[in-house]
Nucleic acid binder design. Sequence first.
RNA 1: GGCCCCAUCGUCUAGUCUGGCCUAGGACACCAGGUUUUCAUCCUGGCAACAGGGGUUCAAAUCCCCUUGGGGUCACCA
Length: 487
Amino acid sequence: MASDRPVRVRFAPSPTGMLHIGGARTALFNWAFARSCGGKFLLRIEDTDTARNSQESLQSILDSMRWLGLDWDEGPDADGDFGPYFQSQRVESYQAAIKRGLEEGWLYRCFATPEQLEAQREAARQAKTNWRFDSQSRGLSAEEAAAKHAAGKANVLRFRVQADEDIIIRDHIRGDVSFSSNEVEDWVAVRGNGMPTYNFVCALDDSAMEISHVIRGEEHLVNTPKQVLVYRALGLPEPEYAHVPLILGKDGKKLSKRTGDTALGDYISAGYPADALFNFLCLLGFSIDDKTDVFTREQLLEAFSLKRISKAGAIFDTDKLAWICGDYIRRMSVQELTAAVLPYCIEAGLVGEHASAGEELQQVVAAFQERFTLYSDFAPQAAGMFGELPDWDKKARKALAADGAARAVATLAGALEDCTWPPEDFMSVVKGVAGELEVGLGKVMKPVRAALTGTLGGPELDVVIRMLGRERSLKRLREFPAPTASE
RNA sequence: GGCCCCAUCGUCUAGUCUGGCCUAGGACACCAGGUUUUCAUCCUGGCAACAGGGGUUCAAAUCCCCUUGGGGUCACCA
């Protein structure tokens, strides 16, 4: 299985939708493998399904890949010696193989219509019996078939699968997997419209691009035999395989929209830190060792090996993802984090259109750094530190309505007014007020926090008043909602 | 249903190939304490797994077989 070919791997998405989480991880493993052993990582666009392709999908896939930091050596926007990298532009290159297949007989024209096939399938379903395609056209002589074809009869090209052949796939993750060719039907290699299908071009392209390792999702394991048959028919060297386990949803089934966001784009726009998501994706079916779960790309590349990819599917655990995000945010420098959070602050109108990640904003970010997990979390949480206090939440209102709360807040406001600004030791001021009123510290702190921030959590209060400044602090301590009858 | 893949705490996993160091390790989540003016962070502790049954062996989470369970796939989609 070990070959001395240079390592060349590829990720081959089809532009029929956004990049899926599972696809992203497959791309990531391909990337990591190439980068960890000095190979090439290529991106090939499988756009043979002309009906479902879209430019937007392609763009969003490219954007998602770049966002994750998965750069490719050859592919769209990165020309190499094995282009073009769009299958739709490679159709020419498949003609020789098609011609040869027809001549050698491992491709044959099948004249069954889609309607006939569907009827057969339906009948099999009704009878609850296993159905495998059995072409009437298989026995046609080349001349007969050519004649029908020339007469304008619609047809597809099917691959003639020989009976009783063993097809063994040597897989780096699963070991040897064997299939009997009796289980493989005569599949369609070229559609009626002349466009070849996935299994056919996949093998042709991988071969033409000198792909050494095919690393892809486990759902592809079952059609690998078809591709292997193409290599065998053409006498081409087979690549090595690695079928990575699936990412599953909370329900244990293949991740689907039902159980959460499945498109990487959703995570990008939701404000997830790219490095955190990257790290988390690695953890799904891969591990460096028995205790490292937060690591840098360098560490990953140093440790990466197909052998360390596990076989069983992995459930996408949003709790752990959230934890990793928070961990990354806590480790970031304040400057970096501020820059990351700035667009969301602008969007929320907290700062001006052209605000910068300057010192003032950095101060606030630093105060909240250990309290949020997504870039987008900061703005709503820290909104009260900008401009006016938007509102007081339920708990804050309750705290302000408590017995003695109003008095405590007013007393503190008075005490604050008398001291220099910023107060040298805020806590001793609070303690002084508590002593004066002969109440516990909490009786003062809680309502004061409520009045100042509109909520009961948040950064330390002396930091809060510093950020707020004298005027705003005193204003908030003087203007807060009075207890309402209902409370 | 056929074929294929898989099976360690609730979840992600280490250990499995190359049996003994496993009284099964780490992390998330959860619970309990501690630090803290609050929240969060942080620290300490706790809960919690080798799917079941047969073999092989002095010895099995590790090797073999069966059962069970889960997943994937069965298109002129990729």
